[in-house]
């Protein structure tokens, strides 16, 4: 009798455990803003949730974009197109939309800095120096944005190293290596 009771408890426990795991994996069909996948403390967005998460992050963004630039309604192609060998990402860590939104913000300002509409000749040495100065001034704001895990001095140092090796300004180097079309398309928000 005792054995039967133990077995029944074990079955109930197993079923409850299964339900809990299933719920963790698919919880939230009704709330697209919260990550629906959970793996031992890490929460992930399913692919179908990314656009909703992106909109939640970019609505009322804490830092202004350059004049005339807005966040796209859909998440950038980075989230939709990343694949290898036919496999796509099935879980995006909670916070990733905020990380890429900050990068979009950064790329928008870099593009703006590198294409001055003032009397400074775009492409000239003075324009490059001007763009570097503006990018450096914005860096402090960038590393304080939600989702940014990079340290200001390390990031600045890394970009200076890359710029030196590429033989271009820091702003040009950063835009070239970190602002691909899957993140930011000037005048045409990626992912729209």
């Amino acid at each position: 009798m005792q054995r039967q009771a133990w077995l029944a408890a074990a079955v109930v426990g197993a079923v409850a455990g299964g339900i809990a795991i299933g719920a963790a994996q698919s919880a939230n069909a009704s709330n697209s803003d919260a990550p629906s996948l959970e793996a031992n403390g890490h929460k992930f967005y399913a692919p179908g949730q990314i656009d909703g998460a992106w909109r939640a992050v970019t609505k009322d963004y804490p830092a202004a974009l350059p004049a005339g630039v807005t966040f796209p309604r859909k998440a950038p192609g980075f989230f939709h197109d990343a694949a290898t060998g036919g496999d796509k990402i099935q879980g995006w860590e909670d916070g990733f939309p905020a990380t890429i939104a900050a990068q979009y913000w950064r790329c928008a300002w870099l593009y703006d800095d590198l294409h001055p509409t003032s009397s400074i000749d775009a492409g000239s040495a003075s324009a490059s120096a001007h763009a570097d100065a503006l990018a450096q001034a914005q860096l402090q704001q960038y590393v304080g944005l939600p989702g940014v895990s990079l340290g200001e001095s390390q990031f600045s140092s890394d970009m200076a190293t890359i710029a030196q090796k590429m033989g271009v300004s820091k702003a040009q180097a950063e835009y070239q290596v970190n602002c691909g079309p899957e993140i930011y398309v000037p005048g045409n928000g990626a992912g729209e």
Binding site: Q25, L37, A39, N40, G41, H42, F44, A82, D87, K88, I89, Q90, G91, W92, E93, D94, G95, F96, A98, T99, G147, V148, S149, L150, F155, D158, M159, T161, I162, K165, M166
Partner: peptide
Amino acid sequence: SGSAYENEWYAYQTARTNTWA
């Protein structure tokens, strides 16, 4: 380190930088 379910790609938000060509 982390935990993941099998046979699916999981992407993590921490950014790192390679500085060589």
